[in-house]
Simulated scan of single mutants.
Amino acid sequence: MNRYYLALASSFLLTLAASNAFGGGLSDLRPHQDKNIDKPTVKQEKAAQWKHPDIPRGQALIYIVRPSRYSGSANTYRISINGTPIADLKTGFYFTHFIQPGVIRISAMTRANILNFGLSLAMMGKPAMELNTSKGEIHFIEVGVDFAGGPSLQVVDASTGESFLLKAKRTETFEEAGIKPAPENSTNDGKPKTGHGGVPYLRH
């Protein structure tokens, strides 16, 4: 009987050795696992690493983002808050801005270039919107493109806003770049500057 068990044990050991020799082993007896199962996507990894900047005490944070789109991509939009130009936005960019709480006015206008100068520029809309902010709040504003190629403005929720930010690049505000542009729709003396028919000229 002892010889029988000895032969059985020897047979098992030989089988195990042969299996290991061919790169198998007992691990091959386990169900195959796909290494890609539950592997996070690049977008999910970026989202997990996303961190909003610290908001100064008593202020609110505003993200203004222009998602990358072909329509209107030749135009740059100047964004102003309470009449003060904050940044120029190209398609696929965003900027951040801290603001004192309260009702603020956000406006946008198209900067003149060789492709839109003249009648085309005059026909483009100059939208404005009011946003009621409270201290510590975070707001997301999407800058879109209207039917004439000019800008449009709308508030979006945090989930939508963050999805835009993951695909966009941050641009500097005028303050960060050390630039002091003239106030919205004005000359250096603060008086409105208009052209034929009372259409405001764009500062650039």
Rank of each mutant, 00 (worst) to 15 (best):
Y94P: 09
K90T: 05
A47F: 06
S80W: 02
Q33Y: 13
R66P: 12
A74C: 02
S27C: 02
D34T: 00
R66N: 09
I81W: 10
G72I: 05
Q33V: 14
H52N: 15
I37Q: 15
A74W: 03
L61T: 07
D28K: 01
T76D: 01
G72D: 11
N75T: 01
Y94M: 04
A60G: 06
R78T: 00
T76W: 03
D88H: 08
F95R: 00
P67L: 02
G24L: 15
K39H: 04
T41V: 02
I81R: 11
S71L: 10
K90Q: 15
R69V: 13
F98P: 01
D88F: 04
V42Y: 08
Y63S: 02
G83H: 05
L29N: 02
S73K: 14
K90G: 12
L26D: 04
L29D: 06
T84M: 13
T76V: 06
D38L: 13
W50F: 15
W50H: 09
Q49E: 14
N82H: 08
T41I: 03
S80A: 15
P40R: 02
I81H: 05
L89V: 00
R57S: 13
G72H: 13
T91C: 13
N82Y: 07
W50A: 03
Q44N: 04
G92I: 00
G72Y: 10
Y77P: 02
P85N: 05
L89E: 07
F93A: 06
K43N: 02
H52W: 06
K51S: 14
R30I: 09
L61P: 05
I62W: 07
Q33D: 03
Y94D: 12
F98G: 08
Y70W: 14
A60F: 10
P67H: 03
V42C: 06
P67T: 01
S73E: 14
T76S: 03
I79M: 14
G25R: 12
T96C: 05
T96M: 12
G72T: 04
A74N: 09
Q44L: 04
F95A: 02
Q49F: 04
F95Y: 08
I86W: 04
A87H: 01
F93I: 00
T76G: 01
T84Y: 11
F22Y: 14
H52P: 06
I79Y: 10
A60T: 02
V65R: 00
Q33N: 06
P53N: 04
P40T: 01
K51F: 04
H32V: 10
K51M: 09
S68N: 12
I37W: 13
T96L: 10
S80Q: 03
T84N: 12
T41K: 10
T84C: 05
H52G: 08
K43I: 00
A47K: 04
G25C: 11
G83V: 12
F93M: 11
T91Y: 06
T91S: 15
T96R: 13
Y63K: 00
G83L: 08
I55T: 14
Y94R: 00
S27N: 01
I81F: 10
